[in-house]
């Protein structure tokens, strides 16, 4: 696991998903939504509440607890 997670990123920062440690069901759901290893995402909002990401042009809101479990590079 790299040290950086999604919740560490600032708005407009781009990154690649490294791994997701959310538990079996959640992992699968995220994979199915296209948030897979190597997927390029851009953080749009990260202050309070869920984090908003842009994933190939679509907006996805992820809870903070979950964002903590997604490591990025």
């Amino acid at each position: 696991m790299t040290n950086k997670t999604l919740s560490d990123l600032h708005p407009n920062q781009e990154c690649k998903i490294h791994s997701i440690y959310g538990g079996r069901n959640v992992n699968k759901r995220l994979y199915e939504l296209g948030l897979n290893k190597g997927a390029k995402v851009k953080v749009l909002k990260n202050d309070v509440g869920p984090i908003i990401l842009s994933l190939s042009g679509n907006k996805l809101a992820l809870g903070r607890g979950l964002a903590d479990k997604i490591s990025v590079v």
Binding site: G22, V26, L60, L62, G63
Partner: peptide
């Protein structure tokens, strides 16, 4: 509670 995952449609 389970995690919040939601799409924000345009």
């Amino acid at each position: 509670s389970s995690h919040f995952i939601m799409e924000l449609p345009p």
